[in-house]
């Protein structure tokens, strides 16, 4: 059974993915920042971000309503926390 990561660990790992994959400076990675408008990602970057997050957290991210409602980095942290817990417990959906 994989270890469920704490909120702090999720935030640190997500920020590292964004910094490494999209060369965004760490100090700009704040929970209130909007992923597209403030951090400069576009829809073509989304699939790369998904692949990197899936790999880093060993989770499966599907395009559903919850993903579509993600706007800010804070939303993304919350989503990853929820999905890793669900998928470890096998209670997805």
């Amino acid at each position: 059974m994989k270890k469920t990561l704490s909120e702090k660990e999720v935030i640190a790992l997500t920020n590292r993915v964004l910094a490494e994959s999209f060369e965004i400076e760490e100090e700009r990675l704040l929970p209130e920042k909007r992923i597209f408008a403030d951090l400069g990602l576009d829809s073509l970057d989304t699939v790369d971000l998904v692949v990197a997050l899936q790999k880093r957290f060993s989770i499966t991210i599907r395009e559903d309503e919850r993903v579509r409602s993600i706007r800010s980095l804070g939303d993304l942290y919350t989503y990853i926390m929820t999905v890793q817990q669900e998928q470890q417990a096998g209670t997805e959906g």
Partner: peptide, 10 residues
């Protein structure tokens, strides 16, 4: 297929 997300794929 490494990944698919919506209509995008790698």
């Amino acid at each position: 297929k490494v990944a698919r997300f919506g209509d995008f794929g790698i």
